[in-house]
């Protein structure tokens, strides 16, 4: 049974960052800008957050420090995303090119800055993980559910779920959400009724920057004790999750759980007796999440419908 709990906990570690980043991607695409730089945003966010933890771990620890680091990651993520917004919205540049450039920039900058700032000159940033909550009071005592979700967990899991709820509400139940969606479907029509398309698109991109930066940090924290300018391609996977989830928050949640559980299985198969004894090497377990996603995409993409104006620069003069 403990193996089952272990896999559920692992699933959460992989699911939540995917969910958060994919929701970020959803906001920017719903506003009409493709953010292929989510991977770079995660790297920059994780870099800033981990560096903050590394520099302050003599004076701080625990959940307070984690929350502050998350704020840092969010802020840096937003600043980073402004470069994409400027190129895509003001300069009307190709959004794929701009995003690719930022994806190239992020790991190079993270390595460069880590080696410049750290006195030992290495590119890995070590951090003390003091954030694991061994048991949530009261909730952790619930049989079964408590063992699955409220023991040896991180506060990031609950923040991720909270972000999901807020995102759903904002996208469907607020004036902002309606306006944002209109800019991704038909920006000319939105402009004609007095919506500032540039401002809405900026907001969409900045939300993706915030969630991308946050997602990078909460991906690194439970799965490692050092940051090496890499998030294992999670930003790209989040894009796949977003498309698979049809740009809808709840579907994105379901897809990220699916993908997260596959990933958890690949990471912890050696703890499961019958999988460890099977004559299959670790490389194939690592492949499983990607093959599974391809198959799922093949069956679900037939009626895939992206926001209509996504990846198209908005030109006030065109009709």
């Amino acid at each position: 049974m403990s193996i089952f709990y272990l896999i559920v906990q692992q699933t959460m570690f992989f699911t939540i960052p995917l969910l958060v980043v994919a929701l970020g991607g959803m906001f920017t695409e719903r506003g009409g800008v493709t953010n292929i730089a989510l991977d770079g945003t995660m790297i920059i966010g994780a870099f800033a957050g981990i560096l903050f933890i590394n520099q302050t771990q003599d004076t701080m620890s625990g959940t307070t420090q984690l929350l502050l680091a998350m704020l840092v990651a969010v802020g840096i993520g937003i600043i980073f995303s402004l470069f994409l917004a400027f190129s895509a919205i003001n300069m009307k540049a190709d959004q794929i090119i701009g995003g690719t450039a930022l994806n190239l920039f992020a790991p190079a900058f993270a390595i460069f800055a880590a080696r410049t700032i750290q006195t030992n000159g290495v590119q890995q940033i070590q951090f003390n993980n003091t954030f694991r909550i061994s048991k949530v009071p009261v909730l952790g005592d619930i049989p079964f559910i408590g063992d699955m979700f409220f023991k040896s967990c991180y506060i990031t899991t609950y923040i991720g779920i909270l972000i999901l709820l807020v995102a759903t509400f904002v996208l469907y139940k607020t004036k902002f959400g309606l306006r944002l969606r209109s800019c991704g479907e038909h920006p000319q029509a939105a402009d004609s009724v007095g919506i500032n398309v540039y401002r809405m698109r900026y907001s969409g991109v900045m939300i993706s920057g915030a969630l991308g930066g946050l997602g990078g940090l909460i991906f690194v924290i439970p799965t490692s004790t050092s940051f090496n300018a890499d998030v294992a391609g999670y930003g790209f996977l989040a894009l796949a999750v977003m498309i698979c989830g049809q740009w809808k928050p709840m579907r994105i949640f379901i897809v990220s759980i699916f993908f997260g559980s596959m990933k958890a299985l690949a990471a912890s198969y050696s703890a499961v007796p019958f999988l460890a004894n099977a004559p299959i090497t670790s490389d194939f377990y690592k492949m499983v999440p990607f093959i599974a996603t391809l198959i799922v995409m093949a069956f679900t993409s037939k009626n895939s419908r992206a926001p209509k104006a996504v990846a198209q620069p908005y030109d006030k003069g065109s009709r």
Binding site: D283, K286, L294, M297, S301
Partner: peptide, 26 residues
């Protein structure tokens, strides 16, 4: 996948990248 199943090529090729990387290691 793009022609017959409408799978976005960015997503499909990213998945193929990781499958190829692990298969190559193997």
């Amino acid at each position: 996948l793009k022609a017959f199943f409408n799978v976005h090529e960015v997503i499909a090729t990213i998945m193929m990248n990781y499958i190829g990387m692990y298969l190559c290691n193997f």
